[in-house]
Computed example of a mutant assay.
Amino acid sequence: MRRRLIDAGLIGLAVLDIWIDLWSDAPVSIASGVIGCAALLLRRRMPRTAFALTLPCALLEAALVAPFVALYTLAVRSRDRRFLAACATLFALAQASPSPFQDDPVIDSDTLVYLAYGVATAAVPVLLGQLVLTRRDLSRRIEEIEEVKEHERVLHAQAILAQERAQLAREMHDVVSHQVSLIAVQAGALQVAAPDEPSREAARTIRSLSVGTLDELRTMVALLRGAGDDTTQLAPQPTLADLKALVTGSGIEAVLTGDPDLTVGTPVQRALYRTVQEALTNVRKHAPGAAATVELWRNGLTAGVTVTNTPPTRPALPLPGARQGLVGLQERADLLNGTLESGPTADGGFQVRMALPVN
Rank of each mutant, 00 (worst) to 15 (best):
Ile6Val: 14
Leu10Trp: 13
Ile11His: 07
Gly12Gln: 10
Asp21Asn: 15
Asp21Trp: 14
Leu22Tyr: 05
Asp25Trp: 14
Ala38Gly: 07
Leu42His: 04
Leu42Thr: 04
Met46Asn: 05
Pro47Gly: 02
Pro47Glu: 02
Arg48Pro: 00
Thr49Phe: 12
Cys57Trp: 03
Ala58Leu: 09
Leu59Ile: 07
Leu60Gly: 06
Phe68Tyr: 12
Ala75Leu: 08
Ser78Gly: 06
Arg79Val: 08
Asp80Thr: 05
Arg82Ala: 12
Phe83Gly: 15
Ala88Ile: 09
Ala92Glu: 06
Leu93Asn: 03
Gln102Glu: 15
Leu115Pro: 04
Gly118Ile: 03
Gly118His: 03
Val119Thr: 08
Thr121Ser: 10
Thr121Arg: 06
Thr121Glu: 02
Gly129Glu: 08
Leu131Gly: 14
Val132His: 14
Arg135Pro: 00
Arg135Lys: 04
Ser139Leu: 14
Glu143Asp: 15
Glu146Gln: 15
Glu147Leu: 14
Glu147His: 13
His151Glu: 12
Glu152Val: 09
Arg153Ala: 13
Arg153Met: 08
Ala159Phe: 06
Glu164Ala: 11
His173Leu: 11
Asp174His: 11
Ser177Met: 13
Leu182Thr: 12
Ala184Tyr: 05
Val185Cys: 01
Val185Gly: 02
Gln186Cys: 06
Gly188Ser: 12
Leu190Ser: 12
Leu190Phe: 09
Val192His: 10
Ser199Trp: 04
Ala202Val: 05
Ala203Tyr: 03
Arg204Phe: 12
Ser210Thr: 10
Glu216Cys: 02
Glu216Arg: 15
Thr219Trp: 08
Ala227Phe: 08
Ala227Val: 00
Ala227Arg: 02
Gly228Ala: 04
Asp229Arg: 11
Asp229Ala: 06
Pro236His: 06
Pro236Trp: 04
Pro238Glu: 04
Val247Cys: 01
Ala254Cys: 00
Leu262Phe: 07
Thr263Ile: 08
Gly265Thr: 12
Pro267Ser: 05
Leu272Gln: 12
Tyr273Ser: 01
Val276Leu: 03
Gln277Leu: 14
Glu278Ala: 14
Thr281Lys: 14
Ala292Lys: 01
Val294Cys: 01
Glu295Lys: 13
Leu296Cys: 11
Trp297Gln: 10
Arg298Gly: 09
Gly304Glu: 08
Thr310Gly: 03
Pro312Glu: 08
Leu319Asp: 09
Arg323Tyr: 13
Val327Phe: 07
Ala333Ser: 13
Ala333Arg: 09
Leu336Ile: 12
Leu340Ser: 09
Gly343Trp: 11
Thr345Asn: 06
Phe350Thr: 09
Ala355Tyr: 01
Pro357Met: 04
Asn359Lys: 08
